[in-house]
Write a protein that binds this DNA or RNA. Structure first.
Length: 262
DNA sequence: ATGTCACCTGGTAGGTGA
């Protein structure tokens, strides 16, 4: 079973790339962030034409998430229950027995800004809800654009960016608190190349200079951990024409993860 | 090099968010 996440920065612009990526990688689930589409404009027919179903939840201009799956997703939830949010940021569904939560976490703009305060409140709410979801669904994966670089090794220049957005102690503490629910960073279950990033700023020739951050993550519950066979950042998509500023991340689970006893 | 991209409104440019 393959689970994937990709911040596409406009599904309208990136649809051809998303269709090509699905055809090439054939994931069981792909979580999209920043679709930037109201639901009436979601390209359902194009996605269906290559054999995928879609759950989606969007708004004009900003945010917007989708859960693309080969098999139907069940028990779909939009956003964080009990947390009043003007932004479309989370879509959740059960896919082949795995609870799949796709999230576009707030950017936060700058430490001590109003948007940073919202990011902290949002992460508090996510944590509290996830605690319940983890109890209800032992086999759970949280995928998406976290907008948090968990450690210095996830940052191209940890000295220059110390204390800056994505790298603050408060954001990293929130990431650690998600792990404390019994979740594991799928990427770090394996030895990985140094300087592995999932996002490069469009500005400053950042991709060419490999100046990026690892802010897109796949966390898996304890019940899935031993079944994770690999976790990969697909940096090649950043070399596409009109690339997203984020690369897809995907994780492979052994088939045993799907058996009821695991 | 503060060297981009995508969205909106309201136009053929400027503002916003990332």
């Amino acid at each position: 079973m393959k689970l994937a996440t990709w911040n596409v920065n406009s599904l309208t612009v990136r649809l051809p790339q998303v269709l090509a990526w699905l055809a090439a990688h054939n994931p069981d689930a792909l979580c999209l962030q920043e679709t930037k589409l109201i639901d009436e404009k979601f390209p359902l027919a194009e996605i269906a034409s290559i054999g995928y179903r879609a759950q989606f939840f969007g708004q004009k201009t900003y945010n917007g998430v989708a859960l693309l799956t080969r098999e139907a997703a069940s028990d779909v939830v939009k956003n964080i229950p009990g947390f009043d949010d003007a932004s479309a940021r989370v879509i959740t569904g059960t896919v082949s027995g795995v609870r799949v939560i796709g999230a576009y976490m707030p950017n936060g703009e700058a430490p001590e800004s109003e948007k940073f305060s919202y990011k902290m409140r949002w992460l508090d709410a996510l944590h509290d809800w996830l605690k319940l979801e983890c109890a209800d669904h032992p086999k759970l994966a949280l995928l998406g654009d976290f907008n948090i670089a968990p450690e210095d090794r996830d940052v191209y220049d940890p000295v220059a960016l110390a204390g800056q957005i994505h790298c603050t102690d408060r954001e990293r503490a929130q990431f650690a608190r998600l792990l404390s629910l019994g979740l594991h960073d799928g990427f770090r279950l394996f030895e990985q190349p140094p300087k592995s990033w999932s996002w490069w700023d469009y500005r400053n020739l950042a991709f060419r200079k490999n100046q990026g951050l690892r802010i897109d993550h796949i966390l898996v519950s304890g019940a899935l951990r031993s079944s994770v066979a690999s976790c990969t950042i697909d940096k090649l998509t950043r070399k596409n024409e009109r690339p997203s500023d984020h690369a897809p991340v995907w994780l492979e689970l052994d088939p045993q993860a799907l058996s009821p006893s695991s």
